[in-house]
Amino acid sequence: MATSTPATKTLEKAGIAFELVQYDYAPGNDRVGLQAADAIGAPPGQVFKTLMVELDGKPVCAILPSDRELNMKKCAKALKGKSAAMMDPQKAERLTGYKVGGISPLGSRKRLPAALDASAKSYDTIFLNGGQRGLQVKLKPDDLIKLLGCQVEDLVR
């Protein structure tokens, strides 16, 4: 597996310390974040998933624990919108340049507004997708917040 992705290049260019963690991705699993947490031996709340959302018709990124569900109203409020809905997976792939199961909030084709669930701040480090299926990056939540300029709010049900 190649470990150089747009996500890892973005982290390197920004001078952010991170660790790569690889695992065997199982296609067909609809709970990729939970699969990743299990495979790498991390608590599901420490492994964050990236969801592509349309906020008032515009693309945004929500980053939340793999064992939780996104609350669309909270997401809309965090990103100062009125209405949020999940983005079509094919549209998300075209927009980010990543495949579903490997979408990262880092290094997408277009920089998007992002919101990170506040629970990330309870960990010294979190895991998130490194830009391909079976690849996680481990980094400090504050580094992610600074790099993305993301809102930090309660996003989950």
Results as ranks from 00 to 15, higher is better:
D30S: 14
D30T: 15
R31Y: 10
V32P: 04
L34T: 04
L34F: 02
A37H: 01
D38I: 03
D38M: 02
I40D: 00
G41C: 09
A42T: 05
A42M: 08
A42S: 11
A42V: 08
P43L: 10
P43T: 09
P43Q: 13
Q46R: 14
Q46L: 05
V47R: 01
F48Q: 00
F48C: 08
F48M: 03
L51M: 14
V53D: 02
E54D: 15
E54T: 13
L55W: 03
D56H: 00
P59N: 06
C61N: 06
A62G: 10
A62N: 03
P65Y: 10
D67I: 10
R68C: 13
E69A: 15
E69C: 10
N71T: 08
M72H: 07
K73T: 12
K74I: 05
K77M: 05
K77L: 12
K77W: 08
L79G: 01
L79V: 10
K80T: 07
K80V: 01
K80A: 09
K82A: 07
K82T: 09
A84I: 10
M86W: 10
M87W: 09
Q90M: 13
E93P: 02
R94S: 15
L95C: 06
T96R: 02
G97F: 00
Y98N: 00
V100G: 00
G101F: 04
G101A: 05
G102Q: 06
G102F: 05
P105V: 04
P105R: 02
G107Q: 03
K110A: 09
R111I: 05
R111L: 09
R111T: 12
R111F: 01
A115L: 11
A115P: 12
L116E: 12
L116Y: 12
L116P: 04
D117I: 09
D117S: 04
A118D: 12
A120Y: 03
K121W: 06
Y123S: 01
Y123H: 11
D124N: 14
G131N: 05
Q132C: 15
K138V: 08
L139Y: 03
L139V: 06
K140D: 13
P141N: 06
P141G: 03
D143N: 12
L144H: 03
K146H: 11
K146W: 01
C150E: 10
Q151A: 15
Q151H: 07
E153C: 09
